[in-house]
């Protein structure tokens, strides 16, 4: 079996967000780029499954849609333990166009298990994984918090609003994963970093695909008013706020 993990290259989650060009463009100056946190968890889980299932998993591939500046992120994924990497040479425009790019690649080189993070921490779309599944006409399971391979059978846990479900699915399928899929993301070891240099990173040409959406403007939230302090000995004041102002009791 082969596992593909779709990675998004995103600004570090502690980045102070700024915009340029009269608030029409994200200001990437000085930004540190990382593997989207959910994608990193997906990769970690894929490697755990590969290591604990004998020879069942032939390889773990990571893929991103982006220009050459996204390659350090792919190299990091190789250092964490992916076997090979693919970069589709297209500027990511929107989820539809990105999913179409990945579809082009997967149709040429099929994978049994495709993992996508539930969202990317930049534009919070939660869209590419589901779109990819529909383009491929594959089953998809979303908000997956557990993925298990037992005797060639796939079992998944999925979070639902107000509970959890256990599912099985046919292969191939797309799993859209969230927190819980792996405990902690793996950190590359020195040996991993050395090995990553010689692992294959293939660049694929973009396929023709339209974008259907685009951001035209951004704004930052208005600044907060100063916090009103209440004395710890006088919680009754807060209860008055609950009752009179917030009307929650």
């Amino acid at each position: 079996m082969k596992i593909l993990i779709c990675l998004s290259n995103v600004p570090d989650t502690t980045t102070k967000i700024k915009f340029t060009g009269d608030n029409t463009q994200f200001d990437a100056a000085g930004v540190q780029w990382i593997i989207n946190p959910w994608d990193e968890l997906a990769l970690t889980r894929a490697l755990e499954i590969k290591e604990t299932s004998g020879t069942t998993i032939e390889k773990v591939t990571v893929l991103t849609v982006g220009k050459a500046d996204t390659e350090p992120t792919l190299r990091k994924a190789l250092a964490i333990g992916a076997d090979d990497a693919v970069r589709i040479d297209a500027e990511p425009k929107d989820a539809y166009q990105v999913a179409a790019q990945i579809t082009g690649f997967v149709k040429e080189q099929p994978y049994d298990i495709i993992l996508c993070g539930i969202e990317s921490s930049d534009y919070n779309g939660s869209t590419v994984g589901g779109m990819l599944a529909e383009f491929l006409d594959s089953p998809s399971v979303s908000s997956v918090s557990g993925l298990f391979l037992e005797n060639g059978q796939i079992r998944l846990n999925r979070e639902i609003d107000g509970g959890q479900e256990v599912l099985e699915t046919m292969i191939p399928f797309v799993a859209i994963v969230q927190k819980g899929i792996a405990k902690e993301p793996r950190i590359p070891s020195m040996r991993g970093i050395m090995m990553a240099r010689s692992k294959p990173l293939t660049v694929k040409p973009a396929v023709a695909a339209d974008e259907l959406t685009g951001f035209t403007a951004f704004e930052l939230p208005p600044p907060h008013a100063k916090c009103k302090m209440i004395d710890a000995e006088n919680v009754g004041e807060l209860v008055k706020v609950f009752r009179n102002e917030l009307k929650i009791i």
Binding site: A99, N124, G125, S126, M131, E134, D161
Partner: peptide, 24 residues
């Protein structure tokens, strides 16, 4: 709705309808 179920279905329906999607 932008909850687990909506996130699961909306992108698939968008592809089916060739619709641009805005989430959340």
């Amino acid at each position: 709705s932008h909850n687990f179920t909506g996130k699961a279905l909306a992108p698939r329906v968008a592809v089916r309808l060739r619709a641009g999607m805005a989430s959340g």
